[in-house]
Design a protein around this nucleic acid. Sequence first.
DNA 1: GCCTGTCCTGGCCACCCGGCCAGTTTCGCA
DNA 2: TGCGAAACTGGCCGGGTGGCCAGGACAGGC
Lengths: 123, 123
Amino acid sequence: MSEDKTPEIVLSLEIDDPALADRLAALLSGVAGLRLAAPGEHAAATVVARDPRSMPEDIALTQRELDVLALMAEGSSNKMIARQLNISVHTVKFHVGSLLDKLDATGRTDAVAHAARRGVIEL
Amino acid sequence: MSEDKTPEIVLSLEIDDPALADRLAALLSGVAGLRLAAPGEHAAATVVARDPRSMPEDIALTQRELDVLALMAEGSSNKMIARQLNISVHTVKFHVGSLLDKLDATGRTDAVAHAARRGVIEL
DNA sequence: GCCTGTCCTGGCCACCCGGCCAGTTTCGCA
DNA sequence: TGCGAAACTGGCCGGGTGGCCAGGACAGGC
């Protein structure tokens, strides 16, 4: 009863390149235990082009910088971040300044965009 | 010579669930024409858990709002956006206000985060 | 016609943001 | 024991941001 279920893994394809998508679809459709998802069907996993996070290449961010970055990504203002972390607004600005420098961003919006692109934070 | 190349599609797995990852790895490793990527190897496609963008559920954004949103995501200030689109700063603020309302965001940073989450823009 | 939606513009104003200056404490490492 | 990195705090200030008020032009649907 080791193979009593094997309930078929439903995969969805999210490939822009038509040639690659076709080849993958052809290969995967012939695999027992796998099924490609119908349009709109809930899939257990998705095949996407490229690899988003294969080379995270972590920028050296301190723990505190990660804290304020996470709150920034949620749209929190400096004042809100200060309250959340029990620090002063000045300290928040200090960390934000370091983040803008390390992430090579021109503002907080650019900072979270860069961080999300590099996989530093999960949007 | 229709099958002279078929240079093997390299797939990488990004699955948190160990059981699902194992089953997928076992199934995919037996497929001719496919190969699982070695750690650090560049992959043509990646299998990720869930489907990030299966239901985009597009919010009704006007073309101009999409223009402003795209420039916002690049960290542009209102003044820069105004210059890019050849409109006044006041008009940019008007569209930004509409975006904050439609995206249910508290600020421009929150707006691009929400938009990226919903797949409205590609970060 | 009239009305709705989109796009555009202006002024005003409180607040926020980012950058500059300065300082303190605490920690680990040479 | 000195020394740098990290974290924290303060004041100051120019410019950016977001919300409010008001208006006009222009296309499409009733």
